[in-house]
Nucleic acid binder design. Structure first.
Lengths: 135, 135
DNA sequence: TATTTACCCTATAGTTTTAGTAGGGAATAC
DNA sequence: GTATTCCCTACTAAAACTATAGGGTAAATA
């Protein structure tokens, strides 16, 4: 299951991408429109800024804006930043790999092989979708 | 991420399916071979029994055995019993559907649509795999 | 029948993760 | 300098996860 953090992050990015003007969007605007706790959303947008998707401006008229255009923002990258691994097991993850303690031989593990298949099909779908695509 | 419960359940089923004899397999045998806590595994196998995948026999020479052959045990069904929904959001789940509180219009929600796509591609992969397939 | 084996069931507890909240600091516009 | 808005740290309540404890019940064997 996706955490609310990731869900809210995706909703916030979608909201921003739908705006017609180029002006920065304020956290308060997004949190009210999308029914997200203001403080929680602040920390999420900060993460997205640090990850290089968004820029920000302080003071009146400030807010968040895209650094990359939505068409260049891949869903895989956003989800990896907010949620972590795409795979359902650490041993099947490309970017967050970890060995299973209980498993002596990964190559022989049925569960591992299944989870690699699922990871690949999920990645295929995610790589097909940029932020611009899902609007 | 898959819970250990689901991972252990899948490993236990694989272990059982690999046995050549038709005799019941004891919890202790599986827990030692697969490095799984005995008591934890007991509760998992009990779940799989209640779900109709396994039968059991008490007393000496007892243990768990398959009611359906591995070739008829779909990975979707096992995972749904142990883990719950396949989808990454309740609003995108077929079997465990729940409306998002924050979302006024599901059909217009970008995140919802993306998660339905991922659910479908995951389901496609899972439906392609029975317990017999992943050995 | 007594004993051993092995599944069945409930309750509980330690740890980790999640989903925020609180409180203030720093930069910018006016 | 004042209001606005993002930035940062710390904390917390609740839930979920991962077991463990302790015994009960059924079956096989002697």
């Amino acid at each position: 299951m996706l955490s609310k953090k990731t869900k809210y992050g995706l909703k916030a990015l979608s909201f921003m991408a739908k705006q017609t003007s180029n002006l920065p969007v304020q956290v308060a605007t997004i949190s009210e429109s999308e029914n997200i706790s203001h403080k929680f959303l602040e920390s999420i947008l900060l993460t997205l800024k640090k990850a290089g998707f968004l820029g920000s401006k302080k003071g009146k008229g400030g807010g968040y804006y895209f650094i990359k255009p939505p068409v260049e923002i891949l869903m895989t990258d956003v989800i990896r930043q907010l949620e972590g691994p795409i795979a359902m097991l650490p041993c099947a993850s490309l970017n967050y790999y970890e060995k299973c303690e209980d498993c002596p031989d990964e190559a022989a593990c049925s569960v591992h092989k299944l989870m690699v298949q699922i990871r690949d099909s999920t990645l295929k779908t995610l790589k097909n979708n940029t932020l611009a695509d899902i609007l």
